[in-house]
């Protein structure tokens, strides 16, 4: 990365820079959602964008997810490239019909006539003691649907590069941010760059165990890897960056090298990205594995409010470390 002029910015700034740069380039791109304009974004991701682009391109909506998501999909069918902000992906559930039944299926059921170049973005995963209804990790539920792409960045650099790719993509993209990452600072170059979909990043090279992780979980895995290093365990962490498309080749390549695989996925375990990865690894790396694929997910219960319960509910450092040790018969 030495070729670039680096500076440190927050995750939310990175997302905003990506949106603003693309809006400067392409008049078809606009931002719509609750509190995105006058309020400057419920989480300040869109701060200042109303001032730059005006109310015709940065558009406040009423609390009406089903209505404005459907409206944006109709606009995308006409050729606009809307970015739809859900304050939280938890709120997107009331818009399930437009975002799951219309956007990802339009191209197919129209025989290729009408695509849907749209980005849905918002906070995903547990925030902090928000309780059951506000703590959705929707990747488990929504990644089941063909026709969409799903992005889950773990750091500011990836967030910017992936968001720019998402906006230019001709298919519907579900972009999963995390309230817990928005203030994360990281190096981002001044120069323009894009990160392609379906290309994992080796967040940490290692030799003993492959840890496949998504989004915020990557950062927790990096901390765990430091601890495990002290025990003589060398972990290779794959930051998948996108769930659809899934970079199967990178997972397979790494597991064939390490012979062990742990998946860390903050959604529930039943029918999830984690279970998809496990199935993939068991199929493709059957003879290379020294143990079955170990999986760390949120506990199979609704998200609790109490702080201690929520900490235990989420994939945490202790549970991840235990899974790695168990996978390597070190427990």
């Amino acid at each position: 990365m030495s070729i670039a002029t680096m500076r440190e910015i927050e995750f939310r700034d990175a997302v905003r820079e990506a949106m603003s740069e693309e809006m400067r380039k392409d008049m078809r791109v606009m931002l719509i959602g609750e509190e995105v304009a006058q309020y400057n974004g419920a989480y300040k991701v869109s701060r200042g964008m109303l001032d730059e682009f005006g109310p015709r391109r940065v558009i406040d909506t009423p609390i009406s997810e089903s209505g404005f998501a459907g409206m944006a999909i109709g606009a995308a069918m006409m050729g606009l490239r809307p970015i739809v902000e859900f304050m939280s992906w938890s709120f997107s559930l009331v818009a399930a019909d437009p975002i799951l039944n219309n956007a990802p299926k339009m191209l197919y059921m129209s025989g290729g006539q009408f695509g849907c170049p749209i980005v849905f973005r918002g906070n995903d995963g547990a925030g902090g003691q928000l309780g059951s209804t506000h703590s959705w990790s929707i990747e488990g539920l929504f990644s089941n649907v063909p026709g969409m792409k799903m992005v889950i960045p773990s750091n500011p650099y990836d967030a910017k590069g992936l968001m720019k790719t998402a906006i230019r993509d001709d298919d519907p993209v579900f972009f999963l941010e995390s309230e817990r990452l928005l203030s994360m600072r990281g190096e981002v170059p001044e120069e323009e760059y894009l990160i392609p979909f379906g290309q994992a990043r080796i967040a940490r090279p290692g030799t003993d165990c492959t840890i496949v992780a998504f989004g915020r979980m990557v950062n927790i895995c990096l901390e765990v890897a430091l601890e495990l290093e002290k025990e003589g365990i060398s972990s290779e962490i794959l930051d998948m960056r996108t769930i659809r498309p899934l970079d199967a080749a990178s997972i397979i390549r790494s597991v064939k090298r390490t012979g062990a695989c742990v998946v860390v996925d903050q959604s529930w375990s039943f029918g999830s990205p984690g279970s998809e990865v496990a199935a993939l690894v068991h199929r493709e790396c059957f003879d290379d594995l020294d143990n079955y694929v170990h999986r760390v997910h949120s506990a199979d219960v609704p998200a609790p409010y109490a702080h201690n319960l929520e900490q235990e509910y989420l994939p945490n450092a202790r549970r991840i470390a235990e899974a790695v040790r168990s996978c390597l018969y070190r427990s």
Binding site: G70, A72, G74, A76, M77, M78, D97
Partner: peptide, 24 residues
């Protein structure tokens, strides 16, 4: 812009088509 199978779902889409023509 379709025939849509879920009752009512086409009205947000239609409003979006109008949004796009006005935006244009």
């Amino acid at each position: 812009f379709g025939g849509h199978g879920i009752v009512g779902a086409q009205i947000p889409l239609g409003v979006g088509l109008a949004f796009a023509t006005k935006y244009e």
